[in-house]
């Protein structure tokens, strides 16, 4: 969770919810792990503790977390981690595809670019060649 990243648009509590879901999807927060306390998180993000409470209530309502009385908020053991992963991947893919379409490229080229990124090397042959052509 990055400090002082609340200047994006959209309600701050939704940003907190999103960040925590992301952390769960990426495995930074495991099932049954404790979330940071309200005050800790509020302090590190520079936001009002009420906003963090709002976000935590929302997470609980979504069935992501549960509260142990007097101890804090924990990730539920049955948290649908795979589903979350899929959702975030889908969102990232959508963004990627929007860029591919904007550039006027095809799915095949997109897949090729993705493969080359993963296996190292680049489909673009370097700055010099672009300048020559």
């Amino acid at each position: 969770m990055h400090a002082w990243e609340t200047r994006k648009k959209g309600p701050v509590y939704l940003q907190i919810v999103d960040n925590i879901l992301h952390d769960i999807a990426r495995g930074k927060l495991a099932p049954d792990e404790k979330l940071p306390s309200v005050r800790e998180l509020a302090e590190s993000m520079g936001v009002n503790p009420n906003t963090v409470i709002h976000a935590y209530t929302e997470l609980e309502r979504m069935g992501i977390t549960y509260t142990r009385r007097g101890q804090g908020t924990y990730v539920r053991p049955d948290v649908p981690q795979d589903l979350l992963r899929k959702k975030f991947l889908e969102a990232a893919a959508r963004k990627f595809w929007a860029e591919v379409e904007a550039l006027g490229l095809s799915l095949a080229e997109a897949v090729q670019a993705l493969e080359e990124v993963v296996h190292g090397g680049s489909s673009v042959r370097g700055d010099q060649e672009i300048r020559k052509s």
Binding site: R7, R39, A42, V47, P49, N50, T51
Partner: peptide, 22 residues
């Protein structure tokens, strides 16, 4: 934030909106 108490009311005047926004 560290001294924040839920029962207390706070009014802060500022024109440094960016940092205080949250």
């Amino acid at each position: 934030i560290r001294t924040w108490r839920s029962e207390a009311t706070t009014i802060i005047s500022t024109h440094e909106v960016h940092e205080a926004e949250g």
